[in-house]
Design a protein around this nucleic acid. Structure first.
Length: 881
RNA sequence: GGGAGCAUAGCUCAGUUGGUUCAGAGCGUCUGCCUUACAAGCAGAGGGUCGGGGGUUCGACUCCCUCUGCUCCCACCA
């Protein structure tokens, strides 16, 4: 078969992926082998592939393919997340573009649109993952809103409700006025925001609701909320304001009378030391309100507009109202001054709207007991975080966690299985039928139509925290006492989870909680936390910056293998990834290197009658040893999740070790055949190398592996066993490296002196050079060693290889003065090196204090240095110095 | 405001209990090569007071203190 000089990924990738699918190589069923299980962090069902997914899933695929080749029963479960708020807002936007408003639809109508949208656009990302080569078990694809997975979510809710962990109550929550829903604390991002600090005069009331000429000043960033003020608060220890005790003040513009109260919460040094208390619109004020029994007046509606309770500016958006009230206050003489101010403001993670602290009725899950166990799981090492610096962050979060607000005012998601009786009492049950039964225990005459189900749905994470359980068994979540089914019993706990640190708390911690609760075991053993993919300048990749390349375009341009390699090359665990397209180019180049090495090897003709040249025998022996050495290193890297290090070790083995050294040595002369022993060894090495590379670059390795022998249908490299490191001769590797260093030195001399590689040179070799590898030097450096390695008196260029003195006689070509200067510089360096070693050795404390091994090493340095000085001096003597 | 982490070559990073001739790798740069697998390549070369300062030690990139610069997480100072 004729192979082009360049590898063309487009011709091979789809072909082999289809072949893998046809043969169901990715599919796993429980059997007697050890399982290796991974669940995908489910991407949003409407999401499209971005570089973060590429990183994450490439790493996952490497681990899964490696485990599969290690003989484990590897199972990687793919799927998507319904992402309630994100998906719902997309559907709302799409409907809006069609002139349909969500308010005009019934819940059922809206959900029909949403499901249509999901069927049409959902799961694109999964097909994109196939382009990347992900070896997921597609037969197991799950969606967090599949009927059975939803059932598991409902069961879980009922379980925790019955356990007393779920409660409903009016609490201050984070309200998203754009998404029109409450969000959890974790979904609020605080960013420093510049705003204004308004200093307002509140006049003291004369007791009849009329202003006196006395006033106090409060400082606020939110003047539009003054109408909801319930009190003015001072610190009881603040002497400046003792005169205010028991007084009442008037809210500007609306002249409403409110009391002055005292609470030590108020910082005397901050602002003016007077705080306006607005219980409905600030978390702290709410707490103060409870302590002092203040009325709660909510003047902001769902959309963030002032409502009629505000009396003024009714219907205005809160930010418009802020601008307008500033003028009104100024006109009324209540505005003392306005300062620029920067303070942290909460934004919704999903809609980027400014979060409005708001009182509302929500469902909560008690976290203390769950968090305590989940913390223990990590502290005890049952779950390992990689890198482990995240343990601190994890602990801090788990020790300070607050109850989880799990209700969302959305339609897309699992509707809360709580049913209200006509009198407002609530029952919680899996189905309306069961709810009715429960309801009748309370109120026997109640009918099915009298029950009203809670309108809210559950937080997305309330379904994805079950993921490692529910993808296998949808009954077990919510039923800790149930027997796990065959799949769950076999695959749980999963082995590794690869995900980003940004969802360590959202998702990872909560999965641990659910695992402990329902399985009495953690959901995974290792959590590999990747960095965030950034651009070359260190900026986060984002649509608005336009600095995020489309992975599919990259795959088109460089091939999936190239993209995978480019991503992995720069991905040390836990560090952010600074991605640059040039790395993908490097990946593509590596593909090409492999391709061309293959072309070379398969282009050889075996000459049955040829004997194996000595250099080839040496090369084969060396590479066999080197291969073992690298296999050992790579295994160690894998064990520590140092994936990019494992890759780099293999990369260098192939490019430098195999191509630059091994192949150059065994390569037969043009037109000549190759001996059988070398050929077979070479093919076998190539086979091992392809297997080692396969987890990283699945496509090209399959292509070449299939090509290198006639394979049966149904055979694949991905199910071959990964080579295992055996015993090897470390000393021989050392000897071979000396040969390489010698070759490099001679090539350097050639370059310096402008000598063609075609001209043979003589080489004088000093004592101590390993004779067994000389044939390699002869072949690659094109030299003829002097008889018996005798020291020559001819003038030439001399050099040291470790402790062996070598020289290339070059009569007429050598500039003696330069040569002598070089030798003298060497001598000077060696002598000062020797002096420093001897200083150490003459230090009594060193000799007695340092380990024997270290002292012995110093003595060897001394001896080596002495012998080097010796031979440099001899060389100088040859020049008459 | 609290906590964590980072700083090593032009860039991205290794450096695994302080001691192998330890100051490294990849990429980039420079020089010479279209050498019969590969110019997406080959051969060779240069490049760092390990952020600054102090300390512990026979010995510090490595441990301690401090300063500077950056990053992230958490947080209700209006």
């Amino acid at each position: 078969m004729e192979l082009s000089a360049k590898y063309n990924p487009a011709e091979t990738e789809d072909k082999w992926y289809a072949y893998w699918l046809e043969n169901k190589f990715f599919h796993s069923e429980p059997d007697s082998r050890e399982p290796y299980t991974v669940v995908i962090p489910p991407p949003n069902v409407t999401g499209i592939l971005h570089m973060g997914h590429v990183l994450n899933n490439t790493l996952n695929d490497v681990l899964v393919r490696k485990a599969r080749m290690d003989g484990k029963n590897a199972c990687w479960v793919p799927g998507t997340d319904h992402a309630s708020i994100a998906t719902e807002s997309k559907v709302v936007a799409k409907l809006k573009a069609e002139g349909i408003s969500k308010e005009d639809l019934t819940r059922e109508e809206f959900l029909r649109h949403a499901w249509e949208w999901k069927e049409k656009h959902g799961g694109i990302i999964l097909s994109q993952l196939r382009k990347l080569g992900a070896s997921c078990d597609w037969d197991r694809t799950k969606f967090t809103m599949d009927p059975d997975l939803s059932e598991a979510v409902i069961n879980t809710f009922v379980y925790f409700y019955n356990k007393g962990y779920i409660y409903r109550g009016v609490r201050m929550v984070n309200w998203d006025p754009v998404g029109l829903t409450a969000v959890s604390d974790e979904e609020v991002i605080h960013r420093d925001t510049t705003s204004k600090f308004y200093h307002l005069r509140y006049y003291i009331s004369d007791g009849q609701g009329n202003p006196t000429d006395k006033y106090l000043i409060i400082a606020t960033t939110r003047p539009e909320t003054i109408m909801a003020d319930a009190a003015i608060c001072i610190n009881p220890a603040d002497e400046r304001y003792h005169w205010l005790k028991g007084k009442k003040v008037l809210i500007p513009l609306i002249n409403k009378e409110i009391p002055v109260i005292e609470d030590s919460y108020v910082e005397m040094e901050f602002g003016t030391g007077c705080l306006k208390v607005t219980p409905a619109h600030d978390v702290n004020d709410y707490e103060i309100g409870i302590r002092h029994n203040l009325p709660v007046l909510d003047i902001i509606d769902d959309h963030g507009r002032l409502n009629e309770k505000a009396q003024i500016l009714v219907g205005e958006d809160r930010f418009d109202a802020r601008r307008k009230i500033e003028d009104m206050l100024r006109e009324a003489g209540n505005l003392e001054k306005v300062e620029d101010y920067t303070s942290p403001v909460g934004y919704s993670e999903r809609t980027n709207a400014v979060i409005e602290p708001r009182l509302s009725m929500q469902w909560f899950l008690k976290m203390d007991a769950l968090a305590k166990d989940a913390l223990e799981s990590v502290e005890s090492g049952k779950v390992k975080l990689i890198p482990d610096k995240y343990r601190n962050t994890y602990r801090h979060w788990m020790e300070n966690v607050r109850d989880w607000c799990i209700s969302r005012q959305l339609w897309w998601g699992q509707q809360i299985p709580a049913y209200y009786l006509p009198d407002g009492q609530v029952v919680v049950a899996q189905t309306p039928e069961k709810a009715l039964e429960l309801a009748r225990e309370i109120m026997p005459e109640v009918g099915a139509d009298d029950l009203r189900q809670d309108e809210d749905v559950l937080d997305t994470w309330f379904s994805s925290w079950l993921w490692p359980i529910s993808v296998f068994d949808t009954n077990k979540a919510g039923h800790p006492d149930a027997e796990p089914n065959r799949d769950l019993a076999y695959y749980y706990p999963t082995n590794d989870l690869v995900t980003g640190p940004d969802i360590l708390f959202f998702w990872v911690a909560r999965m641990i909680m659910a695992g402990n609760e329902f399985m009495n075991d953690v959901p995974f053993r290792n959590v590999y936390l990747t960095g965030i993919v950034r651009d070359k300048l260190g900026r986060k990749m984002s649509k608005t910056l336009g600095n995020s390349p489309d992975p599919l375009v990259l795959i088109d341009k460089y091939g999936a293998d190239g993209v995978r390699l480019g991503m992995l090359l720069c991905s040390s665990a836990g560090n952010d990834i600074l991605f640059d397209e040039s790395q993908v180019e490097q990946g593509r180049n590596f593909c090409n290197k492999i391709w061309n090495a293959y072309r070379l090897v398969t282009g050889w003709n075996v000459d049955e009658s040829a004997n194996q040249p000595e250099a080839s025998a040496v090369a084969v022996k060396w590479f066999a040893a080197k291969l073992n050495e690298v296999l050992e290193t790579v295994e160690d890297h894998y064990g520590k999740f140092r994936i990019s290090d494992a890759l780099m070790a293999i990369y260098k083995l192939f490019w430098d070790g195999f191509c630059s050294w091994y192949l150059e040595i065994v390569k037969p002369a043009y037109g000549a055949g190759i001996d059988k022993a070398t050929y077979e060894a070479t093919i076998s090495f190539f086979d091992s190398l392809l297997k080692m590379i396969h987890p990283f670059m699945p496509f090209i390795t399959e292509e070449l592996w299939q090509n290198m022998a006639s394979r049966k249908d149904g055979e694949t490299i991905m199910l071959q066993r990964m080579p295992v490191a055996g015993e090897y001769d470390k000393n021989f590797i050392q000897d071979f490296e000396m040969a390489c260093e010698t070759v490099v030195a001679i090539r350097g001399i050639r370059q310096q002196k402008g000598l063609s590689p075609k001209d043979s040179l003589k080489l004088n070799v000093g004592a101590g050079f390993p004779e067994n590898v000389m044939s390699v030097v002869v072949k690659l450096a094109n030299v003829v060693p002097a008889e018996n390695g005798a020291e020559s008196q001819e003038s030439g260029v001399s050099f040291m290889v470790r402790t062996v003195k070598m020289s290339v006689p070059l009569t007429g070509l050598v500039n003696e003065e330069e040569e002598i200067a070089k030798l003298e510089a060497d001598l000077e360096y060696q002598e000062s090196f020797l002096a420093s070693v001897r200083k150490k050795l003459s230090n009594e404390k060193f000799v007695s204090g340092a380990p024997e091994k270290v002292v012995a090493m110093e003595r060897k340095k001394e001896a080596d240095s002495l012998s080097k000085i010796e031979s440099i001096k001899a060389s100088l003597a040859a020049y008459g110095k």
